[in-house]
Design a protein around this nucleic acid. Sequence first.
DNA 1: TTCAAAATTAAGCATATGCTTAATTTTATA
DNA 2: TATAAAATTAAGCATATGCTTAATTTTGAA
Lengths: 189, 189
Amino acid sequence: MDKGDERKKQLLQVALDVFIEKGYYGTSTREIARRAGVSSGLLFHYFNRKESIYLELVKIGVEEMRIDTEIAMEAPYEYLLQTVKHVFERLESNPSFGKMFVFMDAVQYTTVNEKEIELLLKSMDICRQWIPVILEGQRRGEFRAGNSHALCVAIFGAIQGIAQEKVRIPDTPLPETDWLMDLIVNRTR
Amino acid sequence: MDKGDERKKQLLQVALDVFIEKGYYGTSTREIARRAGVSSGLLFHYFNRKESIYLELVKIGVEEMRIDTEIAMEAPYEYLLQTVKHVFERLESNPSFGKMFVFMDAVQYTTVNEKEIELLLKSMDICRQWIPVILEGQRRGEFRAGNSHALCVAIFGAIQGIAQEKVRIPDTPLPETDWLMDLIVNRTR
DNA sequence: TTCAAAATTAAGCATATGCTTAATTTTATA
DNA sequence: TATAAAATTAAGCATATGCTTAATTTTGAA
């Protein structure tokens, strides 16, 4: 209902598109404003700096990527399977999810002078969140033995790469969930 | 020996670093020059436009990524295995390879107005090169059944994602080659 | 040693950028 | 309808950018 909030949402949506397309530095505030059909002044009425737009998007992204460690530790295999399924389903059904996913990855390469962003990035580091879960899965014999960090990199790297391809070429066919799980699951037991 | 060629190489090396770090648009010609310890004028003495620097790097990248389809078709499993091993070894031993790898991926997201780049990108499209090889591997029963394009996306997406992580955090442990192969190999036969 | 070619720089032009400011329009409520 | 708050714009400042130009230094062969 609030007109201001609607506009802000719209601006964030447009900004996400441009950031993904051109990167942080390649995105001009003028272009965000132009694509949204408003003046630069209005953009800076809602966001005090360019970095603030970026920061708000990162915050939204962090929220979307957070895992529930407690549940995950109870059933590592099941939780990972559901996570992969969930990501793939949303990649198919919701283009803006894919964009956010790719955006969140690009963030990690973007050097922006914001202490706040650095903090967010730490909280968002996928391996940091997942390694304990993978260790638990290995302890149970559900996941294959080996360097748990490397396992984490393998599966989430794969998901990341696939998501990127999907965003770049939307009719890219997604792999089966099982294939991805074969990266990490212990098939010898 | 040729001093000009040496300088050009150096400039390309520096430019690659900056392009990876800040993206195409975020990279200023001034910064490339500054990091190389030369004037802007000299940079434009060797490259007539900013895009030309980018283009030369893409050309080098394409050369590094090209596969030998003829040999690949003769032994799909073996060729893929060697490719993965080769990439991982070079990721470990040669940081600039990783940078080039990530750069080549970023190119695909960068909209640069160069017909030449578009042509290069087609020739560089990994799935276009690999799908015939994967189909042959499936025909032989070496690779698992399923959408060959999706299989291609799975394995090269994984490699891509892992390479990105490696470039971002150089002490990231790389997964075992076998784990990656489990994405695509037919274990039921 | 000479001197033309090659390497290099300093200065600057035109435009794009992040962001501000003051003014104007729209909205909603009393 | 009157009016204060909210939304929006137009114009512009300071700086950064891609790239050019004219001049200077370095190099290497005769």
